[in-house]
Nucleic acid binder design. Structure first.
Length: 716
DNA sequence: GCGTACTTT
């Protein structure tokens, strides 16, 4: 949970600060601020149980902490443990978060509370950003990053304590991490027996080459200390964590939440959008002042409800028209997201129309009323077909509680659940963990790289289906990441595991070296690794289409992506020669993106990934070379890499995906939508109204048996 | 003739 910060720096304070430039006054202000921070810390619910908590951590190797919203656990516990001496011998307290922003904001706050510079005693580390140093003792990070760290140091020997925060969210990374930590803890608590086994397991997986890992070195330094684990979770499901960790002790820390009155409908609502609309106006016309937060499932719903609200406002009498709508969802540009945080003009009530971004990722102040239709759009994955889809499903009880809690941050609130109370009791307790709803290739590859060979027997907190695991093993085998005995292969499997990419993309890079098109492939995998690069605003559809046409290649979407990337790089190069300030360059790029209907955030992300991966492959001894105009080489390389995603045209103009025999269509956004090439490879298969393949390139069907003989028998 | 919640290495 994000900590709630005291309002200690008002704009008025800052004005006073400017007026009094006198040093003494500044000192006094600093002192006053420190005093306020101290007061705030003392007032947190967790402060009163500091001694007991430290004692429990001393006594127990694993501790479950059930901390309610606003308890202060995320910011305070690491400080308590630091003060209790858990960082002796240069050891580190690691705190993992599922999200990047949380890791950064919490670290900044704790550094301030400790009165140290960020990156010294207190720091954070997330992908693309490392604010730590050799003196860092309290380190906040994303759980995915700690998993990556484990590849280099399987015993996580620098850490004396690892705190897994927000464990109830059960992201793939959290689940894999918990399984790994359990193993590491065992290895470190019995250095002579279990540790030996664990190290042996590690060594086995890397018989042929050991350059990238150094488990033996790690074991020596870890010999003296055991690893303390602290799992922090929201209330509902402490028992499952405790059971998983051999009956680990669970302690409860109260939060600071105001009461929220929950109201249900008498009957199920057949049209939840209409019900949402009615409830918005019921609150607006009948309830006391305070902002409204309504949870909807996606952008389209948000836009349509927004239009409906505006229509109805116009029908209200003049005195009641003081209602303002603000949308917020992840793909909304950040400047527009910020509108949700601005207070409504005086006399106005704000209604925020949000996806579940407002459930955990952002906390909007001033919410007094929550409207919860009880639905969420969720990813689902079918291991048999390899198909992902987004479906609208009922929320879990935990999600419903999380949503209603948003009404009680600053005072008592109300939550309107748009379904009968009898329906609530039918909801599942918690959301199905992500690990049971996603493609496992990356998870399996990482576990193999950690020396864990028996994936089916691995002690997951909740096991994914056997089918899903077998499918991933098969896929990794076909990609050459696993040898005949299903161990990590050398060097291909090891190289693939080192790259933070989808395994298929990693393989494409390794092959691109041989096909001499590494420069192009590096761009493609970076561009494919981010959310959609193209931006299509409804109002400017034609302009957007024209902009996109200027990049398009007749060969397909992959080369089109290369063209976009190179054009953006050219734009940056040009602004570099005229003005070298980074900020102006970014502004230029932003402007270029707007002109060309490119999503700036996605492109930035792709550039970051590009430079990180380039670093990795250079370290691996590859040097990016371009195939120039020889796009044949590049398309052959795409075929050799993505052969599992090939499709053949059928007489009726639809396609048949060769690996799953499904009938698919080329997505209308593809540059090959009209071309109807005989044979294509694609990167994504999604189901909406139909089965669509996206990111498509035209290839020669004869290349399949030639370049992927392990999959396509020569006669097919 | 699309139109996709949220994360992350």
């Amino acid at each position: 949970m994000m900590p709630s910060f005291p309002n200690i720096s008002t704009s008025k304070d800052q004005q006073d600060g400017r007026k009094l430039a006198n040093g003494d006054c500044k000192n006094q202000q600093v002192l006053a601020r420190r005093q306020l921070i101290l007061q705030h810390r003392k007032s947190l619910p967790i402060a009163s149980v500091e001694r007991r908590l430290v004692e429990e951590v001393r006594k127990n190797d694993t501790l479950i902490i059930v901390g309610e919203t606003g308890s202060g656990k995320t910011t305070q516990l690491p400080q308590f443990l630091y003060n209790a001496g858990f960082c002796r011998d240069e050891k580190i307290i690691g705190v993992t978060q599922p999200r990047r922003v949380a890791a950064v904001t919490v670290a900044k706050r704790v550094a301030e509370e400790c009165n140290v510079e960020l990156g010294q005693k207190v720091g954070y580390s997330i992908r693309f950003e490392d604010a730590t140093s050799s003196s860092t003792r309290i380190k906040y990070m994303t759980d995915g990053l700690l998993l990556r760290e484990a590849l280099l140091d399987p015993l996580l020997s620098r850490y004396s304590i690892i705190i897994v925060d927000e464990a109830h969210e059960r992201t793939v990374h959290t689940d894999v991490l918990l399984g790994l930590l359990k193993k590491v803890q065992l290895a470190r608590s019995h250095p002579t027996t279990n540790q030996h086994n664990f190290i042996k397991a590690n060594a086995k997986g890397r018989e042929d080459e050991s350059r990238s890992f150094s488990p033996l070195k790690a074991s020596e330094s870890a010999k003296s200390t055991s690893l303390k684990l602290i799992i922090m979770s929201a209330s509902l499901d402490a028992r499952c964590f405790s059971e998983y960790f051999g009956g680990a002790k669970a302690v409860h820390v109260h939060g600071r939440q105001y009461p929220v009155e929950v109201l249900y409908t008498y009957q199920p609502e057949p049209d939840y959008l209409d019900a949402t609309l009615i409830t918005i106006f019921q609150i607006h016309l009948e309830e006391a002042s305070g902002d409204i937060l309504a949870f909807l499932t996606g952008q389209e719903e948000i836009e349509s409800v927004e239009r409906l609200v505006h229509d109805r406002i116009r029908q209200l009498p003049d005195g009641s028209q003081n209602l303002l709508t603000v949308p917020i969802y992840a793909s909304l540009p950040s400047e527009q997201q910020m509108n949700a945080f601005k207070p409504a003009p005086s006399g106005f009530r704000k209604v925020i129309l949000a996806t579940n971004i407002a459930e955990t990722s952002v906390t909007i102040p001033g919410i007094k009323y929550v409207i919860d239709p009880g639905l969420v759009k969720a990813r689902s994955y079918n291991p048999v077909t390899g198909m992902e889809s987004l479906i609208i499903i009922p929320t879990s009880k935990a999600q419903a509680l999380q949503r209603s809690g948003r009404a009680g941050r600053e005072g008592p609130g109300k939550c309107f659940r748009l379904y009968p109370e009898s329906e609530f009791s039918k909801l599942t307790d918690s959301t199905v963990p992500e690990i049971k709803r996603c493609n496992l290739s990356n998870v399996v590859l990482q576990l193999k790289a950690l020396g864990i060979d028996d994936i089916i027997g691995f002690d997951f907190m909740e096991k994914p289906s056997r089918m899903a695991i077998v499918k991933s093993l098969e896929q990794l085998f076909l990609l050459g990441a696993l040898s005949d005995d299903y161990k990590l292969s050398s060097p291909v499997g090891q190289q693939m595991a080192r790259l933070p990419l989808d395994p298929m993309y990693s393989k494409a890079l390794i092959l691109a070296k041989e096909f001499k098109c590494l420069e192009e492939m590096l761009i493609v995998v970076a561009m494919l690794s981010v959310e959609s690069i193209f931006y299509f605003p409804r109002e400017k559809m034609e302009e957007a289409r024209a902009a996109r046409k200027s990049f398009s290649s007749p060969e397909g979407d992959h080369i089109t992506l290369v063209n976009v990337y190179r054009a953006s790089a050219e734009c940056l190069e040009k602004s570099k020669t005229t003005n070298s300030k980074e900020k102006t360059m970014e502004k230029k790029l932003n402007k270029w993106c707007r002109e060309n209907f490119i999503n700036y955030r996605s492109l930035r992300h792709a550039r970051d990934i590009h430079s990180q991966i380039e670093g990795h492959i250079r370290q691996m001894g590859f040097s990016p070379s371009s195939c120039g105009d020889d796009m044949l080489q590049f398309r052959r390389c795409l075929t050799a890499s993505f052969f599992l995603n090939a499709a053949m045209k059928q007489p009726d103009g639809s396609y048949r995906a060769l690996s799953s025999s499904q009938t698919v269509q080329v997505h209308p956004s593809s540059v090959l939508f009209r071309t109807k090439a005989d044979c294509i490879i694609f990167n994504e298969l999604v189901r909406t109204n139909q089965n669509y393949v996206r990111n498509v390139t035209r290839v020669d069907p004869l290349w399949l048996p030639e370049l992927a003989p392990q999959y396509y028998a020569a006669d097919s």
